Computed example of a mutant assay.
Amino acid sequence: MGYSIFHDFVVKDSLPNVYNAISQPDHLVNWWPLRCTGKLKVGETYNFNFTDEYNWFATVKSCELNDHIHFKMTKSDPDWDPTSFGFDLEEKDNGVLVKFWHKDWPECNAHYKHSSFCWALLLKGLKDYLEKGLIIPFEERS
């Protein structure tokens, strides 16, 4: 049994805007990787490029428009390779509830703990991107 990261938060924006921000490469680069490519379709590969040294890949395991997208890491870091992560969305009166998860970490090591912290910061960046139009320069993202 692996370790998991969970973060739930509300974004005050429309469901389609939130879904685009978590699934479309041209939006993902505004809050997570430096460069990104991929197609929103089960079995397709996304490339999350952070630097030449951190040029990672994941496969879309499941997706449904304005509902969820789930990825399985395929080529990344030894700690990340066994993991899957995803976003499940739920429309609420006050916005969209984003239920983020990152599961199957092999160890509760320093990398796992650091990644949990980084996800929290990055997801705050996602929220600020959608609610305020704020794009944190890549070099300033944790």
Score class of each variant (00 low, 15 high):
Leu40Gln: 06
Leu40Met: 10
Leu40Pro: 00
Leu40Ala: 09
Leu40Asp: 08
Leu40Ile: 11
Lys41Gly: 04
Lys41Leu: 11
Lys41Gln: 09
Lys41Cys: 06
Val42Asp: 08
Gly43Cys: 10
Glu44Thr: 12
Glu44Val: 12
Thr45Lys: 10
Tyr46Asp: 00
Tyr46Glu: 00
Tyr46Lys: 01
Asn47Phe: 04
Asn47Trp: 04
Asn49His: 14
Phe50Asn: 11
Thr51Phe: 14
Glu53Gly: 14
Glu53Tyr: 15
Glu53Ile: 14
Tyr54Gln: 14
Tyr54Glu: 13
Asn55Gly: 15
Asn55Lys: 14
Asn55Val: 09
Trp56Pro: 03
Trp56Gly: 06
Trp56Ile: 14
Phe57Lys: 14
Ala58Ile: 07
Thr59Glu: 12
Thr59Asn: 11
Thr59Gly: 09
Lys61Gly: 08
Ser62Ile: 05
Ser62Phe: 07
Cys63Tyr: 07
Cys63Ser: 09
Cys63Arg: 04
Cys63Pro: 00
Cys63Thr: 11
Glu64Ala: 13
Glu64Leu: 12
Leu65Asn: 10
Asn66Met: 05
Asn66Ala: 10
Asn66Val: 02
Asn66Asp: 13
Asp67Ser: 15
Asp67Thr: 13
His68Tyr: 13
His68Asn: 10
Ile69Glu: 02
Ile69Leu: 06
Ile69His: 01
Ile69Ala: 04
Ile69Cys: 04
His70Thr: 05
His70Lys: 07
His70Gly: 01
Phe71Gln: 03
Phe71Gly: 01
Phe71Lys: 01
Lys72Tyr: 02
Lys72Ser: 11
Met73His: 11
Met73Ala: 09
Met73Cys: 12
Thr74Asn: 09
Thr74Gln: 11
Thr74Cys: 07
Thr74Phe: 09
Lys75Tyr: 13
Lys75Ala: 14
Ser76Arg: 04
Ser76Gly: 15
Asp77Cys: 13
Asp77Gly: 05
Asp77Tyr: 12
Pro78Ser: 13
Pro78Trp: 13
Asp79Glu: 14
Asp79Tyr: 12
Trp80Asn: 01
Asp81Ile: 08
Asp81Met: 07
Asp81His: 06
Pro82Gly: 08
Pro82Lys: 09
Pro82Arg: 05
Pro82Ala: 09
Pro82Val: 02
Thr83Gln: 04
Ser84Gly: 05
Phe85Gln: 00
Gly86Cys: 07
Gly86Thr: 04
Gly86Tyr: 03
Phe87Met: 03
Phe87Lys: 00
Asp88Cys: 07
Asp88Lys: 12
Leu89Pro: 01
Leu89Glu: 10
Leu89Gly: 06
Leu89Asn: 06
Leu89Cys: 10
Glu90Tyr: 10
Glu90Thr: 08
Glu90Ala: 11
Glu91Asp: 07
Glu91Pro: 03
Glu91Phe: 10
Lys92Asp: 05
Lys92Thr: 10
Lys92Pro: 05
Asp93Met: 12
Asp93Glu: 12
Asn94Arg: 10
Asn94His: 10
Asn94Gln: 14
Gly95Pro: 02
Gly95Val: 02
Gly95Leu: 06
Val96Phe: 08
Leu97Ser: 05
Leu97Phe: 08
Leu97Gln: 04
Val98Cys: 02
Lys99Asp: 02
Lys99Thr: 02
Lys99Tyr: 05
Phe100Trp: 04
Phe100Met: 02
Phe100Asp: 00
Trp101Pro: 00
Trp101Thr: 01
Trp101Ala: 04
